[in-house]
Design a protein around this nucleic acid. Structure first.
Lengths: 229, 229
DNA sequence: GAAAATCATTTGCCTAGACATATTACCCGC
DNA sequence: GCGGGTAATATGTCTAGGCAAATGATTTTC
């Protein structure tokens, strides 16, 4: 007899999956469920609350709990550091710095990151290899106003990604995925043809409201991001 | 004065983000925190438990709670029904069925879905419009062995997506995202040029271990999938 | 010294009862 | 029939206390 709320949760989940309680239908209230399962209301509450967090049911005060019409399926992706992603798949990781510039913040970046005054940014371009095949092209901009010491770091060995993770551990971020076409630069670095469709991930990061970094990550042809739920 | 556990949670989160409690460090135990915040231990428990679920801290019995070295970054995407996605953005939704075939299960589909014996599948092609602009091209295959009555449904008005959601509401799924190039069919339906890079989502669905449906969803040029965390 | 048994600490979960809050349902006056 | 106020109800959260389980630390035994 351990973790009763888990059992309650699974019984309810089974009833929903099997269609005993169909979409849109109201399920019994917490007091009745507690009576049925012979437990405290708090136990039922936790079970049903977690099901609601998973998107299986919808709860409203007074109105009760009902099975969702269209289950809000939330797909969860872990966003690992590239090196870990490659090494986890058993391939050898290699990193190369392609370019390093110090420049004034371009306007498009100021707009995107919400940078008010002009200042300097560190622009880094690097490529991540898996088993010596190009895997990801990384185009990164670091706000030097927020991280002045980034200018002194030697990024020829440490990838900016890993340096940032150690330096600014807990930040807010916005990530977005889309498709883009390979241009000549990408084609030469990734070893594909110009015009090939490529998977693109962009990420902006803030720390305490201050813009830290923006990165464009373009993956090798055929890259897929997969998850089960 | 509502939701004390939320306040506790935010105070602790702030201390971690600000570096008062650095990566790898042990934070006070629940009893001490409860004393500090003048609340019951259960309240602190919920606060810290949720922080652990978010990946900010790591908990172990007897060992206590410590701040994670590298926070597990989980991006969460909601996978809504197309119509809801479009209507939520304030645009008008329209749906069109392009093609409907009954055919023997092609080999590639049998391999992908883990379908053992050969049987028939229903192949549907449709397009979803937002404000009369093509938004998503949907290429769907439904396993008739699992859903024989799908053959009798009129999909000219109801989109297969919505019919399936009502009929087989809660299933296991695998979803994957990638980039693809527009071919002539896609170009004509989506109104883009041949060769344009397009964002592709593929989804396989099972119900109680039985393959139900596989769908390829190709989005209009420039589509982005975004999330904050 | 190494392995095994015991102890202590911390999180995990449960109960029973209480009050708060949102929201529906109903009743009433018009 | 309709608008507005009021009561009823289901969920949301808190408290105080208690037992369970995992596991790091310590001590005992061989």
């Amino acid at each position: 007899m351990k973790a009763a709320f888990r059992d309650v949760k699974e019984v309810i989940r089974t009833r929903i999956v099997d269609g005993d309680w169909g979409p849109g239908e109201l399920i019994p209230n917490e007091i009745d469920l507690a009576a049925e399962f012979q437990c405290a209301r708090a136990t039922v509450n936790r079970a049903v609350r977690e099901l609601a967090e998973e998107g299986l049911v919808e709860r409203k005060r007074k109105a009760g709990t009902r099975v969702r019409m269209s289950p809000v399926r939330r797909a969860q992706f872990e966003i690992p550091v590239v090196r870990e992603e490659i090494e986890a798949s058993g391939r050898m990781y290699r990193y190369a710095l392609v370019r390093r510039d110090l420049c004034d913040t371009p306007d498009w970046l100021r707009a995107r990151m919400g940078l008010g005054d002009r200042g300097q940014v560190l622009h880094l371009v690097c490529v991540h290899y898996a088993d010596n095949n190009p895997y990801q092209y990384e185009d990164r901009w670091i706000n030097l106003a927020a991280l002045p010491n980034a200018a002194d770091v030697d990024f020829s060995e440490t990838s900016p990604n890993e340096w940032l993770v150690e330096t600014v551990p807990f930040s807010d971020a916005e990530i977005s995925f889309s498709a883009t076409a390979s241009d000549e630069v990408l084609a030469s670095h990734l070893g594909c043809a110009v015009g090939n469709p490529l998977f693109l991930a962009e990420r902006s990061t803030w720390w305490r409201g201050e813009p830290i970094t923006y990165v464009r990550m373009v993956f090798q042809r055929g890259h897929r991001m997969t998850t089960r739920f």
